[in-house]
Computed example of a mutant assay.
Amino acid sequence: MRILQRYFGTEIIRAVLFVMLALLALFSFFDLMAELPSVNKGGYKIQHAIWYVCLGLPGYVYEFMPIAVLIGTIYVLSQFASNSEFTIMRAASMSTLMAANMLIKIGLLFVVLTFIFGELIAPSSSKFAEAMKLTALGAAESQEFRTGLWTKDLIRENGLKGNIIGSRFLNVKEILPNHQLNEVKMYEFDKNFHLVREVTAKNATYQGKNVWRLFDVNETSFPMTLSAEDITNVKSQQWNSQDVISEVTPDILSVLFADPDRMSAIDLASFTQHLAENKQDNERYLIAFWKKITYPFATLVMMALALPFAYLHVRSGGTSLKIFSGIMIGMVFYLINSLFSHLGMLNTWPPVFTALVPSFLFLGLALLGLRYVERN
């Protein structure tokens, strides 16, 4: 069995790598064509576009791993069937359960690789790619908003710790590639949502440890109860600079522009908690978080889907037809996986249910396929 295990593993890994390289080459070409209109804007040159596309490849590896595993495994098992190798293996007392066990061991390797690309490589490369592109494009491509970007955090007694004493709404007109904020407005409320302070600043820079330094600051303080008699108690002050401690960091601001599917589970968990603490809708990020946790195991489901093809002999269709079937099954899985994410948000389904249903549907399809080929 060790020899068979090694033989299965070598052939499947080789086929999966070949399919993955083909998919990456195809989508790299499409991405490069999409980047060409941005070339020569600011300092963005063709080498920047090529580098940007290359940095996006780890994200595609993560997304296409289940599809590549499905197509590669179908190809190998179809070759075994067409050469009668699988028939000989079965005659040598290899049961369906033993074959499935060998595929699971190989699939676990792809599960680990998918986790590594999804959690470590792809999120970091995506952030670096976006930062590189914005820096090369310069001010012409800074994140600028018509009505400003809005976000919210909590005000605590001792900065980031202690009891909650209020909330702060932050509005930013423009975010530069170096995380500098331009035209900043902050509205601070007490626990009863009475406006107590309004702060405007020309710009702000991040100093680290949750500290933002505001420049050219205008601060207006309001009394707890504002009436005609209290209008004289409204105080306005001006400062050259002022430090503000906030839960909002450049990482949280970058999340607002990032595709949740390209974020790591750790970042998603942190941002989801931030939204929950501020009583904001986090459904989209919760679904993305659970998809991030469960998606790597979809490679095992794809292995199970490929196994019935080993029982189909040449008379049931050539290898090319089986590969085409694998491509179509992979595309359907990819589309259904995306579809359920949107359906989950529209129907407020539990995030875990939304993330798991596509994999369970295809696992059921794999079991039905195995039952059919064994009976026939």
Rank of each mutant, 00 (worst) to 15 (best):
A81P: 02
V196G: 07
N376F: 12
T225A: 14
G118C: 02
E85G: 05
W212F: 05
K191M: 15
L339T: 11
T354A: 04
L36C: 00
L365I: 13
H48K: 05
D216K: 09
P37E: 00
F309M: 11
L367Y: 11
F18A: 14
L256K: 11
L335G: 08
G72D: 03
V39A: 03
I12C: 02
E198P: 00
T147M: 13
T114S: 14
S246G: 07
K127Y: 14
Y62I: 02
E229D: 13
S38F: 12
V373W: 04
F86S: 11
I252L: 15
L253Y: 02
N171M: 06
L97V: 14
M65Y: 01
Y187H: 10
S126W: 11
P296E: 06
I46E: 04
M132S: 12
G369H: 06
H313N: 12
R14F: 09
G107C: 03
D230K: 14
K133S: 13
V217H: 03
L343R: 06
Y372N: 10
F309V: 05
I50E: 01
S82K: 11
H274A: 07
W349M: 08
N158M: 07
T10A: 15
L160M: 15
L268D: 03
K191G: 07
V211C: 02
S241A: 07
F333H: 01
F117G: 00
L370Y: 04
Y62T: 06
I88Y: 08
W51A: 15
L307F: 07
F360R: 01
T249N: 06
L170T: 13
T294E: 07
Y187A: 08
F324A: 15
D267P: 00
M303R: 04
L256Q: 10
F30T: 09
P58M: 02
L32Y: 12
L286K: 12
I164D: 03
A140G: 10
V112A: 10
L356I: 10
I121A: 03
E130N: 08
S84W: 07
L26K: 01
I165Q: 08
T220Q: 09
G107H: 04
H179C: 07
S124F: 14
E174M: 12
D230Y: 09
T319G: 08
I13Y: 09
T354E: 02
P66N: 04
Y372C: 00
Y295E: 05
V76F: 00
I50A: 10
S359C: 06
A355C: 05
E63A: 14
T272D: 03
K292H: 09
